[in-house]
Design a protein around this nucleic acid. Structure first.
Lengths: 232, 232
DNA sequence: GCGGATAAAATAATCGATTTTCAAGTAGAA
DNA sequence: TTCTACTTGAAAATCGATTATTTTATCCGC
């Protein structure tokens, strides 16, 4: 029985805990659940139709990851979001990705270069929205976007650095979703991606570093404005 | 209220899960449990005298942290160690700490400087070994050591970057313990720490970056040799 | 003897009842 | 009225039994 990702992607193999972890994680990142919201275990169990143990395990994992805040004997809550946190996150993201892309350009071979070009191509060919629903971003686009950014730094020479970058990417995704919900458009995102790809092909580390930082800071700036308005 | 790690770390407040997490974590970092060793839940429950749920929760947290490897339906095992992993880890550590110390020197104020000086002083005043047992490193020294390295990067401007650095520090601690067990001496470690402190006070970013990288690479080199011999 | 299928044992994952803990609300005293 | 001590209800944490899965052992047919 090959698991067909159509009917039951979370079919037979995975553990319930893993499954529920993925689902809850997605809900938090997509801001389906509000930041700061209390996570009552019982309600979650009901919602996902599992027992306490797997639910608890999922929450534990998410809490070491920083998406959920845990305090002993007082349960779990979705990690709060705020302007200060966004500043912290954006800095870490800029610095780490700049570092990683420089190292990648220095160490990456032709195969890496091709990987970046390919990832860019796929991203540019993926529509940002599903033909039906214009307000929800296409999951396919999100995956392609993720892959593109991942490819840029995949030759850095340290698996861990990449892991950290991906972790930061996911954390940012939460903020991007807040922006999207408020109607912020990433207007010339495509152009920025193209420029990044071209800098890689040209092996221009300084330019790539400049671009990636600008790319992140521009997005963060848009979200910051939304956060300011929400607070009022 | 500094933690009373002497009398009763497992006071009244913590949950069992948190407590057992701390204990197991320490055992893994100190290489009391061999890398790669299978972690049979039942045995662990017996060992720490808790039920399955808290044990499972502790293991879950450790697995997102990377100290324990989890595979669905096949249980948990201590994360393996190897030369390749050490290379990856050391690179990440050098790059991230260099970055963080540069940012700290650029942004840190006088208070930060004083903090570094103080942390160094305390470290230099802490004996590396407990007067009785010469082969086990003093926990107090380890804490002071950790604090010193933490202080160096505490003005970087991003909480997350610091968290990553501390995470890497802990991962390295495992390798250092392997070295220590094999009788490797960190001969002029003290001198290196002093030089780092002085570079900070002199606000010499290039020198500090050079020193921190050298510091990590030297330690890694010693451990690498031990790993080579163990493999044979 | 060897390889593949089947059965048995071991171990992980899950559930739901039970225990423990926290905190909001209430009553009594100053 | 205000403060403290007690009560009580809600929620989290834990346990041990049960279920599902993997791994090991065994048995036949070749």
């Amino acid at each position: 029985m090959p698991d067909s990702s159509l009917d039951q992607p979370e079919g037979a193999k995975e553990t319930l805990a893993s499954h529920v972890y993925d689902r809850l994680r997605q809900d938090i990142i997509s801001v389906v659940i509000e930041p700061g919201e209390k996570l009552h275990i019982r309600s979650l169990c009901e919602r996902f139709d599992v027992g306490l143990s797997p639910m608890r395990e999922a929450l534990s994992r998410l809490s070491t990851e920083g998406l959920v805040a845990q305090s002993d004997h007082r349960g779990f809550a979705v990690a709060p979001m705020g302007e200060q946190d966004l500043v912290d996150l954006t800095r870490a993201r800029c610095w780490l990705n700049e570092l990683a892309i420089r190292k990648s350009i220095a160490r990456g071979d032709a195969a890496w270069e091709e990987q970046v070009v390919l990832a860019f191509h796929r991203l540019s060919r993926t529509p940002r929205f599903e033909p039906g629903q214009e307000q929800e971003r296409s999951p396919k686009w999100e995956i392609a976007h993720r892959n593109f950014h991942s490819s840029l730094i995949s030759a850095s020479g340290s698996e861990r650095i990449q892991q950290y970058c991906e972790h930061l990417f996911d954390s940012s995704e939460r903020y991007r979703h807040v922006g999207r919900k408020a109607g912020v458009k990433g207007a010339n995102r495509d152009k920025e991606h193209r420029a990044l790809m071209e800098a890689v092909v040209a092996r221009d580390a300084d330019e790539a570093a400049r671009l990636i930082t600008a790319h992140f800071e521009r997005t963060a700036e848009l979200v910051r404005q939304v956060l300011r308005e929400l607070k009022r």
